[in-house]
């Protein structure tokens, strides 16, 4: 596999007031690689990927995405980078006032200029089929179950065909069968489109299946790093606790 870093974070620190969330985090994601980040609730996983897309401003450090430092960009340059990144929010963040179809169309229309209505419709159906929810196309987000919202959010992330995808707990709150389907979908997207991803998860089955490499974050510091089988054999008490 080509080992060119597509995301590279160096000495990233971030505090909210007195709360030091990230302390000198370093991580890289190579092209075509899926990196899994594990960590207890509140350890700063979501904040890390929000820094990556400039939703949260870093206090210190360098964040290289496609070899550009996103902390130093102007708005329009940042938008350029953002349009090549898919971000799946922890709680879906579907637009409440729009139907499922409008949610996808809105995202797609603002992403690719001058695309015909038929083309949009076709891509919407395709994206919904890939998450197995083509029946929900005319539903409003409020009418969907938690797991369905999650899958629609995934479809909305995939529809712009991003080069990098950041998944924030894609399988939390799903039954084990659906979780597995989603994990397999993530894997197949990686294979098919050669995307690079960061996957935040608590679901070890998902981590095992999708992660080429795993990183464990503990109170804003990277505690351990390695492949699933390496970490599984770790003698570190704390690392082992994830694998029980």
């Amino acid at each position: 596999m080509e080992t060119k870093a597509i995301i590279s974070i160096k000495n990233l620190s971030k505090s909210f007031g007195d709360n030091e969330v990230l302390k000198d985090v370093n991580l890289t994601v190579n092209k075509g690689e899926d990196l899994v980040i594990l960590g207890r609730s509140g350890s700063g996983k979501s904040v890390t990927i929000k820094c990556l897309v400039g939703l949260v401003e870093a206090d210190k450090g360098e964040i290289l995405v496609f070899d550009t430092d996103v902390t130093k960009l102007k708005d329009n340059e940042l938008n350029e980078i953002r349009s090549r990144i898919g971000f799946m929010f922890q709680n879906g963040a579907l637009y409440d006032s729009m139907s499922v179809r409008q949610n996808l169309a809105f995202t797609l229309k603002h992403h690719t200029k001058e695309v015909s209505d038929e083309e949009i419709e076709k891509q919407i159906i395709e994206a919904l089929e890939s998450v197995g929810l083509e029946d929900a196309i005319d539903k409003m987000p409020a009418e969907l179950s938690g797991g369905m919202r999650k899958r629609i959010a995934l479809a909305r992330t995939l529809i712009i065909q991003p080069e990098i995808i950041l998944y924030d707990e894609p399988t939390s709150g799903l039954d084990s069968i659906t979780s597995r389907e989603i994990s397999e979908l993530i894997l197949s997207v990686q294979k098919k489109y050669k995307t690079s991803s960061i996957i935040i998860t608590h679901d070890m089955a998902c981590a095992k299946l999708t992660g080429n490499r795993i990183m464990i974050l503990n109170e804003g510091v990277i505690h351990a790093e390695g492949t699933y089988s390496e970490l599984e054999k770790s003698t570190d008490e704390w690392v082992r606790s994830f694998f029980i």
Binding site: K50, N79, R82, S83, F89, A93, Y95
Partner: peptide, 20 residues
């Protein structure tokens, strides 16, 4: 209330990362 709930449920963030 509408914008507040959009903010709280990260819908505004979602727009921002979609370059909207």
């Amino acid at each position: 209330a509408e914008l507040g709930s959009m903010k709280v449920t990260e819908q505004i963030d979602a727009m921002e990362v979609s370059a909207i």
